[in-house]
Design a protein around this nucleic acid. Structure first.
Lengths: 231, 231
DNA sequence: ATTAGAAAAGGACATATGTCCTATTTGCTA
DNA sequence: TAGCAAATAGGACATATGTCCTTTTCTAAT
C-alpha cells in the first residue's frame, strides 16, 4: 500500500467521482492510497481510520463464518464505500476487503468526518444511498445464494473475474484464490466445486489451460449466472 | 388497518420510542396506524406514502423470488423502520411486510420528510444507523442461510414465533402460515420441512397437537438455532 | 352428520452436496 | 535438475434436499 498526498491528483479524483458536490471544493484531510493485487484493504478485527472510497480497480469483500470458513459477499467496483457499515454504526469490522488487481482508494479521515461532515446533509445522504444500495444488492445475493445451486453461483463468480478477451476471443479467469478458497467463499466444498468445473468442461463452457480456466462459451456462462449474484 | 389521529397518543409513542429527540417536540404530520394479525403493511409493487416505524407488535418481512416463491428475510420488532431502503433510494418495493399479531406503526408522511427532515442531521443519522443495523443482520442471516441446513433454520424460525409459555411449561407455535408457505420462506420444499419436523418430533423436541407444533424441549431448540438467523 | 376442498403426511426415486481419503500434478526453492 | 510442499483431481460413501405423486387428515360449509 502506498500513500499519495498530491492534492491536485486527489482533487481530480474527487471531482471525477462526484465527491466535490458532497464535500465541497476546498476540502482537506483526504488521502489517496493505492494497493497491489491481493493486498488487504482491511481485515476482520481491524479498527478503521476512516471511510474508504474505491475510485479505480476492483475489490473482493468476504466475511468469516463461525465455522472458520469464508464467504464471498460481493465484488465492488467504483464508486464504492468501504467501512461505512462498521464505522458509522460502530460495529467491529467483520469483513475482509482484498484488492483484485491494482486499486486506488480515497480515504476520508476520521477527523474530516467528525469535525466537518457529521452534520453535512449531502454527505449523510451519500451514506444513506450507499447503504440502501448495499442492502438492496445483498438482499438479492442472499436470495440467490439460497435459491441457486453451486453451478449457477460459480458461473456468476467467474463472470465477476474475467479479464478482457484475448486475441483468440476467449476470456480468461483472473485467479485471485486457490480453488479451495474459492469453494469456501461460495459456501461449498472443494470436491463439489471440482465436480461443477468438470461438468462445465464436459459441456464445452470452460477449458483448463495451464492451471487457469478459460471461458469457451461466455453466452452459456451468462445464462447459467442469471442475475449476477456478486455484482 | 385503522388510522388513529389522537395527537396525545402519537406524542406519547414518539417519546417512548425516542423519536422526539430526532424530530423535535412539536412535530406534526405523523400518523398512527394499527394492523390486525396477518394484515399487510406493504406489498411488492406498492408505492410507499412515507416511512413506517413499528412501535408495538411484530412483523414478518419476506421477499418474492424470481421463481415465484417467497423467502423470509427477517422478523422485525420495535423499534424498526419499514420502507427506508425503498423510499430513500427510490427502489421499488420488493418485500412484503405482514403483521404477526396486532401491530402499531407510526407513519412519517412524505411531506414531513421532504419539507422538514431531509436536512435534519439527527433524522439522517437515525436512518444511517437503522440501515447499518439491517445490513449487519442481513449479512449474518445470509451467511447462516448458506451455512446451516434446514433443521437449524427452522429451529430459529420457530423461536421467532413462539408465544409465551402456557401453564404446562410448553411454548406453542404461532401459526402464521401453512407449512407449505413456511417451507417456501425457508427456501426448502414442503417435503423436506416435513422430514425435519418428523425428526424433531422423534427426538422429543416438538410434538404435534391439533395441527399446531408444541415445543417440548426449548433448550434443544435454541441449541439447534444457534445464532438467531431471523432476528 | 356429511361432503368437499385444502392442508398435511409420507413413499419412491432422483440430484446436489459433504466428508474422508488417496493419488497426481504443479510450482517453488535449493 | 531434484525434491518437497501445496494445490489439484477424483473415488467411495454418506447426508441433505428436491420432485412427483398418492393417501390421509382436517376444516369449513351445508
Amino acid at each position: 500500500m502506498q500513500k499519495i498526498s498530491d492534492a491536485r491528483t486527489i482533487q481530480a479524483l474527487m471531482h471525477k467521482n462526484g465527491l466535490t458536490d458532497i464535500f465541497g471544493p476546498d476540502v482537506t484531510g483526504m488521502e489517496l492510497r493505492t494497493y497491489a493485487d491481493r493486498e488487504m484493504i482491511c481485515s476482520m478485527g481491524d479498527t478503521l481510520d476512516g471511510l474508504y472510497v474505491l475510485v479505480s480497480g476492483k475489490l473482493k469483500v468476504y466475511t468469516l463464518l463461525p465455522n472458520g470458513k469464508t464467504m464471498l459477499l460481493r465484488f465492488s467496483r467504483p464508486p464504492a464505500l468501504i467501512g461505512d457499515v462498521e464505522w458509522m454504526a460502530q460495529y467491529p469490522v467483520k469483513n475482509n476487503v482484498e484488492a483484485v488487481g491494482a486499486c486506488s482508494l480515497l480515504v476520508i479521515t476520521r477527523e474530516l468526518i467528525l469535525e466537518k461532515q457529521a452534520n453535512n446533509p449531502a454527505f449523510l445522504w451519500f451514506m444513506i444511498q450507499n447503504l440502501s444500495h448495499k442492502l438492496y444488492t445483498l438482499g438479492n445475493a442472499s436470495a440467490m445464494n439460497l435459491l441457486y445451486p453451486v453451478e449457477n453461483r460459480f458461473a456468476s463468480y467467474l463472470l465477476s473475474l474475467i479479464s478482457e478477451e484475448n486475441s483468440t476471443g476467449q476470456a480468461e479467469e483472473i485467479r485471485t484464490s486457490t480453488l479451495t478458497e474459492t469453494a469456501e467463499m461460495l459456501g461449498t466444498s472443494y470436491r463439489h466445486l471440482n465436480r461443477v468445473i468438470q461438468r462445465l468442461i464436459q459441456e464445452g463452457v470452460l477449458v483448463r489451460k495451464k492451471g487457469r480456466l478459460l471461458i469457451l462459451n461466455e453466452i452459456k456462462l451468462r445464462e447459467l449466472a442469471g442475475n449476477h449474484l456478486y455484482n
